[in-house]
Every structure is written in C-alpha cells, then in structure tokens.
C-alpha cells in the first residue's frame, strides 16, 4: 500500500522539475518536453486522487485521459509551430523569437 503523500510528493517533484526546465530552457523543443513533464505530474495527481477517493466514480481518471489528449494535441501543434518558425527564421532559440513583442 502506497501512501497518498508519496504520490503527491512525486507529482510535485516532477512538476517542479518540469517548471524549472520550462523557465530556464532556451530551446523550444526542451520547453515542449518540460511542459509534457508538468502535464504528467498533474496526471499522476489526478489518477492518485481518483484511486484513493472514488474508485467507483473515477472522474479523475477521465480528466487524466482528457489531459493526455490535450497534451498530445499540444505537442503536435507545438511541433508544427517550431517547424514553421525554424523554416522561416532558422532559429530555435526561443529567447530570440520575439514575434509576440509589443
């Protein structure tokens, strides 16, 4: 039997690492990876609470499934954007991509 706190701690660590990566990374692909890590951390939380609080009503697991789908979609769109940006500007360093600037 695994205590819920272990699972939550694991999710927290994974989220923190993903966040750090997202904040520090200069590479767009790495930022994408970091975001996927954070999504996974969230999914761990969702599934864990769903298991421990409502095994017969697994709303959390449904949410996790939707989150996965959204994550996959996000990865696909992100990839497409990076490919387009890289083709146009030969850059992948997000610090130098400032199309959204004022």
């Amino acid at each position: 039997m695994i205590p819920l706190s272990w699972l939550v701690t694991l999710a927290g660590l994974l989220f923190g690492i993903g966040l750090l990566g997202a904040l520090l990374s200069t590479n767009a692909v790495r930022m994408l990876i970091s975001i996927e890590l954070m999504l996974n951390a969230v999914n761990i939380n969702l599934v864990a609470f769903s298991r421990y609080y409502g095994a017969s009503q697994p709303h959390g697991e449904i949410a996790a499934i939707f989150a996965m789908v959204v994550g996959a979609a996000e990865a696909a769109v992100g990839l497409a954007i990076f490919v387009a940006v890289a083709r146009n500007s030969k850059l992948i360093d997000i610090d130098k991509i400032n199309l959204l600037k004022w």
Binding site: V29, A72, A75, V83, A86, I92
Partner: peptide, 13 residues
Amino acid sequence: VATVLVFAVMLSG
C-alpha cells in the same frame, strides 16, 4: 508524444 518530440528534435535541432 515521444515520436513527435523526436521528430521535433530531428527537424529543428
């Protein structure tokens, strides 16, 4: 996702 990530690495980096 992993496939997409590898693709991304291949195509950009």
